[in-house]
């Protein structure tokens, strides 16, 4: 919002501001409005939280109550027992999801940070073009990426491996977090870098000792974003995983059985998919939304 000030100055309301009619519409109106605002806020809370609440509730319902809308029931752990080592075991998929998301994040963060630093601190031929091109890759439909990789990985014997999924996930993650990190690096003060350089700090040291710690909050947000994107990814594992590298969102389909959907187990598995992401999201909530738009606004 760098141009707020200029817009402000141009705005007629800001120029003509005679002080009059200052205290009208107080009293009854104000209370009514405050009341409406509280109601609206509660409605928002309901809208945001209810699906999560309902899934959590269903996860603890006995199978025969899964379809009932009762809020009071005898809670059971059956659904969790079923997906942890029981008939619908999902522990393998859980491990795969963690491994793939962690590996994707570890690989993509250094790449993106270097690129973000370059985009932020240098002007060079193709600067704008490359930045836009990186963003534009996100318009490519997933199938256009997954299909060629399906045939390529087949030749390499990499179908249904973690490596395959990490490689393809990079196509999703690197562009976004480059964009996101550029926003954070833009916001870092130049003075410290200049001082470091004057002290004879090499580029590697500068990046590692100065930029990385300064950008740490941004890197954390980027890591969370990267983890979240890989964790939630559905299309790539659908194409490229079978059993060994199957991730949780795809494994949810296991609970759609020929006999019908096991909704109680689905809800328990849903909690498993959801909970880590909810916690991570809460940790970075301050910067998360900003981060997504910052790269463009600045």
């Amino acid at each position: 919002m760098t141009d707020t000030a200029t817009k402000l100055a141009k705005h007629p309301a800001a120029i003509a501001a005679p002080v009059r009619r200052q205290r009208r519409r107080r009293g009854g109106w104000a209370i009514g409005r405050a009341f409406l605002r509280v109601l609206a806020t509660l409605a928002i809370l309901f809208f945001v939280l209810f699906p999560i609440f309902w899934m959590a509730l269903t996860a603890f319902k006995p199978a025969r109550d899964a379809f009932s809308t009762a809020v009071l029931f005898t809670p059971t752990l059956d659904n969790f027992l079923a997906i942890f080592g029981g008939a619908s075991d999902l522990t393998g998929a859980l491990v795969n999801s963690v491994l793939i998301a962690v590996a994707t994040t570890i690989v993509s963060i250094p790449l993106a940070l270097l690129a973000a630093y370059a985009f932020s601190r240098y002007r060079f031929p193709g600067h704008r073009g490359m930045l836009l091109a990186i963003v534009a890759t996100q318009f490519i439909p997933g199938v256009a990426i997954a299909l060629p990789f399906l045939t390529l990985f087949r030749s390499l014997g990499l179908i249904d491996t973690h490596l395959a999924l990490v490689v393809v996930n990079l196509s999703l993650v690197v562009p976004y977090i480059t964009w996101l990190l550029k926003g954070f690096v833009d916001g870092l003060p130049l003075e410290i870098e200049e001082a470091a350089r004057l002290d004879g700090c090499t580029q590697v040291n500068l990046l590692w000792r100065v930029i990385t710690p300064l950008a740490a909050p941004g890197i954390f947000v980027a890591a969370v974003f990267s983890f979240l994107l890989s964790w939630n990814e559905f299309l790539f594992p659908t194409f490229l995983a079978r059993t060994e590298a199957e991730t949780l969102p795809v494994a949810l389909m296991t609970l759609v059985m020929p006999e019908g959907v096991a909704w109680g187990q689905m809800a328990a598995a849903g909690l498993l998919v959801m909970a880590p992401m909810l916690i991570l999201a809460l940790l970075v909530r301050k910067h998360f939304a900003e981060g997504m738009t910052m790269g463009a606004v600045k």
Binding site: D160, V250, V256, P258
Partner: peptide
């Protein structure tokens, strides 16, 4: 393999020959 996506995967895996 999940039943819901089974038919696609089975044919893909068989035809592709992983």
């Amino acid at each position: 393999i999940p039943y819901e996506s089974y038919l696609q995967k089975i044919v893909a895996e068989t035809a592709i020959g992983g």
